[in-house]
């Protein structure tokens, strides 16, 4: 079994005394596509923000690539953050920079590569997500799907061993969404990149997920963990069954 690159232990999130989730524990192994799924408002994106250290956990701990996030500060924390990539739900591209310049930002800040090398790496990353011909365009000039793909290219700029994707297929047409799913699977298979994907898109979950956890708003925490295909077939939990079978809950 591959080593764990992400460990979440007994994590809890609370805002103004309100519990979003608690007792969340799981492990993600190298080269795995791990999906965090759940309905709207279940705390998927909040969990992601706790994992990558944007929010401090109310309880529990997160360990990425063998290092605990909460104990780190300053340069040590930045060094760890350089080894992860995050694609935000909207792409979060810098509006005043072209797509190529967006991808070059982490390369410029975190490496000593000469400008020619940075430009070539940016072109390669954009080519990888099928955006080579749009390298000179501004984020305002591209579609939502292209912005998401450019967001992935920027997240991959430093070849991080672990990539976090927040709702990568939300709002995309089925063809673009399927293309994105195929890209994630290929990168995981060929390069050994680990993906942690937050999504509620059923088709994507089943297409890319090796393992998953499911969060539930009412339970304020995890209600299932395992292979999404097996969960769909075998879970006894009515919420999990309703989610995978698109049924209305009583």
């Amino acid at each position: 079994m591959a080593e764990a690159v992400l460990r979440v232990e007994d994590l809890a999130a609370r805002f103004d005394g309100r519990t979003i989730f608690e007792h969340v524990s799981f492990e993600v192994r190298r080269g795995e596509v791990f999906v965090i799924l759940g309905g709207s408002g279940s705390g998927k994106s909040t969990l992601l923000k706790h994992i990558i250290g944007l929010y401090p956990p109310a309880e529990g701990r997160v360990e990425i690539l063998g290092e605990a996030m909460e104990g780190l500060s300053g340069e040590a924390r930045n060094a760890l953050l350089r080894r992860i990539g995050v694609m935000w739900q909207s792409g979060a591209l810098f509006g005043s920079l072209t797509l190529a310049e967006n991808v070059e930002v982490p390369l410029e800040r975190h490496t000593d590569l000469p400008p020619e090398a940075r430009a070539l790496v940016a072109r390669a990353k954009l080519g990888l997500v099928g955006l080579a011909d749009a390298a000179g365009r501004l984020p305002a000039e591209i579609s939502g799907g292209m912005a998401k793909r450019a967001g992935i290219a920027r997240a991959m700029a430093l070849d991080p061993p672990i990539l976090f994707l927040d709702e990568p297929s939300a709002g995309l047409d089925p063809i673009t969404s399927a293309g994105l799913d195929a890209l994630i699977k290929q990168l995981a298979r060929d390069l050994g990149t680990t993906f942690v994907v937050v999504t509620h898109e059923l088709q994507s979950i089943l297409a890319i997920g090796d393992r998953c956890i499911m969060l539930d708003k009412a339970a304020r925490g995890m209600i299932a963990e395992g292979d999404p295909r097996r969960l769909r077939e075998e879970s006894d939990n009515p919420v999990v069954r309703a989610f995978f079978r698109r049924e209305v809950l009583d």
Partner: peptide
């Protein structure tokens, strides 16, 4: 293995036409 995949993917990505200026 993975090293070859990186080389192949980068070659493939760089082969895509650059935007016309």
């Amino acid at each position: 293995g993975p090293l070859q995949a990186v080389l192949d993917r980068t070659r493939q990505a760089l082969a895509a036409p650059a935007p016309a200026e």
